[in-house]
Structure formats: structure tokens, C-alpha cells
Amino acid sequence: MSEIIKVGIADINLVSPPDTIRTTGLGSCVGVILYDEGKKIAGMAHVMLPESALIKSNTTNLGKFADTAVNALYDMLIKKGASAKSIKAKIAGGAQMFQFSSGSEMMRIGPRNVESVKLHLNQFGIPLISSDVGGNSGRTIEFDPLNSQLTIKTVNKGTKII
């Protein structure tokens, strides 16, 4: 029996076949998937904010921030036996759900999350294979570690696979 492993808001989790992993209702948040195609293991994080350094309190929720999430996913995959050189990434999300005339920094959070995730992937030398980011629609995403396919569902634009 295959199961769907859920990743909540600011959450982080691992998956291996036959299970798949999914997170629902990504708005300005970014779903980050790191995977090892050969070993068929993958992890997903639901990132809310770009940088943990901006934060006063020391929250322990590693999936919440782009920097800590990429770091934690990488460590978790290595621990599970993934080889550092074959880890790849796919990302989706980072939409701007509301359009405002006053463009405060908080309103631009979607694009900032995407930028930060890309930056930290780069720092680890993890290639970004495909992405579906921006726009103004919420997304539900599901990753299958068996074929490394990421299925993206939106309310108005249907389903696509990257």
C-alpha cells in the first residue's frame, strides 16, 4: 500500500517509494523538494519565510525558513544514504496572492522566498532541475520519488507535471 506523506505549513519530511509526499495550499510559501534520483529518496519542506537570521526568537522549526530548510533537507537526505553529488532540487510556490498598490516588503514575500531558496540551493551546489514559481495562484504539490515527478495543481490553471 502506498501512502501520501503530508507536509504541513513550516513542516519538513522525507519519502521513499512506493509512498509519495505532498503539501497543500502553497501561497507565498515555497515547496522545496530535494531528491536523489538513483537512491529514490526525497524530502520536502514547506518554507514560509526567506531568512532565519531576521528572526529574534530561536524557533526550532527548521522547515519554516528557506536557509534552515535547505540545510536540514540536505542533512536528512545524506543521513538516509543519498550521495551529495546526486542531490537535485525542484521547487514550486512563491505566489503573490494579493495585489496591493503599496508594495511593502511583506507583500513581496513570495518572490523573496523563491530568491532565498535559490540562493541557498546554490550555496550547497544543488542543481535546480525545474520550478513553477510566482504568479498569483495557490498550489498543491505532490512529489513521487520513484520517477522524480512533481505534480502541481492550481485552482484555475489545472494540473501540470514538472
Binding site: 510559501c29 514560509m48 514575500i109 485552482v155
Partner: peptide
């Protein structure tokens, strides 16, 4: 501002300020 979309995608936007300091 209006939006017709998934509840999670919309509500998480209102949680950004608080998420910076709390879970």
C-alpha cells in the same frame, strides 16, 4: 484585496508576521 483560491494559500499570508516569532 480579494482572492478566490485555496484557503491555505490565502491564510498563510496573514500568518507571516506571527510566523517570524512563533509557531
Amino acid at each position: 484585496a480579494t482572492s478566490i483560491d485555496m484557503a491555505g494559500a490565502i491564510l498563510s499570508f496573514g500568518l507571516l508576521e506571527i510566523s517570524a516569532v512563533s509557531d
